[in-house]
Simulated scan of single mutants.
Amino acid sequence: MRALTVRPLQAGSLAVSDDLSEPVPGEGELLVDGIALGVCGTDREIAAGEYGWAPPGRDRLVLGHESLGRVREAPPGSGFAPGDLVVGVVRRPDPEPCGACARGEFDMCRNGRYTERGIKERDGYGSEVWTVESDYAVRLDPGLADVGMLMEPTTVVAKAWEQVERIGARSWFEPRRALVTGAGPIGLLAALLGVRRGLEVHVLDQVADGPKPELVAGLGAVYHTDPMDQVTAKLDPDVVIEATGAGPLVFAAMAGTGAYGIVCLTGVSPRGRTLSVDAGTVNRDLVLENDAVVGSVNANLRHYHQAAEALAGADPDWLRKLITRRVPLERAAEAFEKHGDDIKVVIDLTDR
C-alpha cells in the first residue's frame, strides 16, 4: 500500500512510501478506500521539518488530515455501509480526559495531551486505504465525491462562527455585516458560512486578480483590496473572521469593528516578528466598546456535522472552483510547492 509519509522534524523527508501494510480494522472501525487528501499550511510545516510527532515507537508519520474516502467495510450497527462517502475526524481526546475532552469538546483540550491524525502521534489519512473508528467518522452527501476533502477546513470555520454566536449571545446580538480577512480556503469557507447566515459579507485580500475575486462575487459577497483601516472605517463590521495570521491585520481587526464587535482569530501567526502596537488604545477600545477577541482552532464532532450540512447545501460548482490543482499521489511533492493562484491543492489517492 502506498502512503504519503514524513519523518517529523526532519526537512526533506517527505516521500511516497510503497511498503506499508494495508491496515486491518479493529473492533468498531471502518475500512476506508482513500479518495483524496487536501493539503494545508500545517502539512507544509510538517513536511518542512517544523512540526509534527510520529506515532510512539515509530520514526515516520503518515501525513494528511483533510480526508475523503469511501467505506469498503463497516461493522454491524455502526450506522455506516459500504459505499458511504466519509471523512475522518482529526483530533482524539487525551487518554485521561480533561474536563473538556470528557464532554466531547476535545477541540478545547486543557492539557494538550490530545492526539491528531496526520499531525500528532497518529497516522493520518494520506494512504490508499485507512481505518477510522465509526464514532470519529462523518458521512457526507454523495454529491460531494469530488470536493469532500473541503470538509475539515469547513469544520474550522463552523467552529469559529459558533464561537462568535456564543459570545454574541452574552447580550442582544443581531450582526448585519461581517468582514473576512484572507481569501484562502479558510477565508472563503468562512465567507460561505457567513452568507448562509444571511449576513452582508465582505472579504479582504491583497490579490487583485486570479480566481479569488470571482469566488467571492459568486457568493454574493464583496471583495476588497484596499488597506485594512480604510475597509473597516467604511464598513464598521459587526464581526471579523481573521484568517491570515498576519500581525498587522490582527491588530487592525481589533481596532476596526463596530461597537460590541467580535473578532475571531483563526490564522496562526509566525513567531519572531516584532510589531509596535499602541496597547493602551487597543485596551481602551476593547473595554469602552464591549468588544471581544477570541482565538479558535480545530473542531469537534458537532462542528463536523455542521460542516457536512453546510457543504451539502452549497453550490457544488462554487466548491469545485476552490480546488485549483489536483496532483496524483505519485507526484505528491508537487502539492507542497506554492503556485501563485493556488487556493486548495488536493492529492488524488486513486491515481493507479
Rank of each mutant, 00 (worst) to 15 (best):
L311E: 07
L275Q: 14
E96R: 08
L215E: 03
A221V: 02
G272M: 04
A11I: 02
K159C: 02
E29M: 06
R110L: 15
V203E: 10
G64W: 01
D291W: 13
K159V: 10
R103F: 01
L249K: 01
R139K: 15
W172T: 14
M149L: 15
T155D: 11
V156R: 00
G26S: 02
L61E: 06
N300P: 08
P55Y: 04
P316Q: 11
D18N: 01
V263F: 07
P153G: 12
D43C: 00
S127W: 07
T115W: 03
V86Y: 13
D59K: 05
P25H: 04
L20E: 01
A292V: 00
G247M: 04
G52W: 04
R103H: 03
R196M: 12
C101Y: 14
E105V: 05
M228F: 10
D238Y: 05
G261I: 07
V201E: 10
E66D: 14
A191F: 10
L286R: 08
D351G: 08
L68M: 15
D205W: 04
P270L: 04
V164I: 15
G187V: 02
V294L: 05
V250K: 02
S78H: 07
E50V: 00
P227H: 07
W130C: 03
Q163F: 08
P227R: 05
A307W: 02
T257V: 15
L319I: 07
V87S: 15
H339D: 11
G340A: 12
A314H: 01
A100S: 08
V132H: 06
V87A: 15
T155E: 04
L188D: 02
R166D: 10
L61A: 12
S67L: 14
D315T: 10
V129M: 06
R91I: 15
S13F: 12
R271G: 00
H339I: 01
R70D: 09
A310K: 08
P328G: 02
L215G: 03
P95V: 03
G182M: 11
R103Q: 14
T225G: 13
E45K: 10
I46N: 13
A217F: 01
A183N: 04
R331Y: 12
H339L: 06
E128L: 02
G220E: 04
E174N: 09
G126M: 06
T324V: 08
E334W: 05
V250S: 07
E174W: 01
T154K: 00
L37Q: 09
Q163C: 13
L37I: 03
A183I: 02
T257H: 08
G34E: 09
L192Y: 04
R177W: 12
V32Q: 05
W130D: 10
N300T: 00
L188A: 09
S17P: 00
I46A: 12
